[in-house]
Design a binder for these strands. Structure first.
Lengths: 159, 159
DNA sequence: CCGCTTGATTTGACTGGCTCAAGAAAACGG
DNA sequence: CCGTTTTCTTGAGCCAGTCAAATCAAGCGG
């Protein structure tokens, strides 16, 4: 399974390099990560990788369809390897946790707004905002309604 | 209709000020604008308004429910006055034009992902990406497929 | 296995969108 | 008209991300 990525890269017309394999490795372990977290984690595998290299790698991966970029409002972009199924996302307002959701409607779902207003729609992006299970519990414990943006926000690395 | 905003502001617990009225005025004329465009346009009414004042006003308006903020991926945040109906948006990849779409499903639509994964969902945000009518025509005229990000992107002020 | 060509990465400077903080100004109740 | 409180102005600063030049490595041909 390790060299599978090499073939993926090659068939996408990309060279196989340590930084790219390191980034892919991080992406496998963390379904939704921001560029900075990727850089930090990738250094465990390839210590000398620079932040800009990560941006470069991610751009290459997204450009060739190996990765997908999502940009939840109010935070840095996140990257994921699950591509080609146009699934959607649940985002926790409190901790930034992101989970995948398969779309309810079908294979290429949601591509039919009620009135397209002359637009040629090619993608529908759906984000469900709410509170993840953990944060619901946390609210119930230390008094809720503070509205404080938890310091642990922007993690979004788990699950 | 002019002093209607004054009441709206007051009943939201906000003071009525020139900058706020100026911003509201711009918002009425331009359904989907970014902060910078608002600042420029608002100066026609209130010349001394500063960019930061615009951010402050917008934060107040959004916080009190008079305006809504949307953040299309890859661009600055846009603001609109249409609130309370959780409608969605069509965004043109080429020129950034934004149009409203009423949701197909019902009153509080889309709030039911197939599997909520333990999340308490309170909002569904839907963005349809595509090409607006004008940009479809433009593509057909000067050879298409360039993929060039038009310089006029980030306008999104019209319609 | 070696060197060459091209593509990738490093390094460093820089931008745009936005926020924070302190002081001056204006709103509005009395 | 005055005082209190909110809001605006002014100015500094932050973060995610981009751009460009120079170095370095991948993978091809020999």
């Amino acid at each position: 399974m390790e060299t599978a990525w090499e073939e993926q890269l090659r068939s996408a017309g990309l060279r196989v390099t340590r930084p790219r394999l390191a980034v892919l490795d991080v992406l496998v372990g963390h379904p939704h990560v921001d560029a900075d977290t990727i850089a930090t984690a990738a250094r465990a595998v390839h210590p000398s990788i620079s932040p800009q290299a990560v941006y470069g790698v991610l751009k290459a991966l997204v450009g060739s369809g190996l990765a997908r970029r999502i940009e939840p409002a109010g935070g840095p972009a996140l990257y994921e390897l699950r591509v080609g199924d146009n699934h959607h996302h649940l985002v926790c307002r409190e901790c930034g946790l992101v989970a995948d959701v398969d779309c309810v409607v079908g294979a290429a779902p949601c591509l039919a707004p009620s009135d397209a207003a002359g637009f040629a729609v090619d993608e529908a992006e759906v984000v469900f905002w709410g509170l993840c299970a953990d944060c619901q519990v946390a609210r119930r414990q230390h008094g809720y309604g503070t509205g404080t943006t938890s310091s642990s926000i922007r993690e979004g690395v788990r699950a």
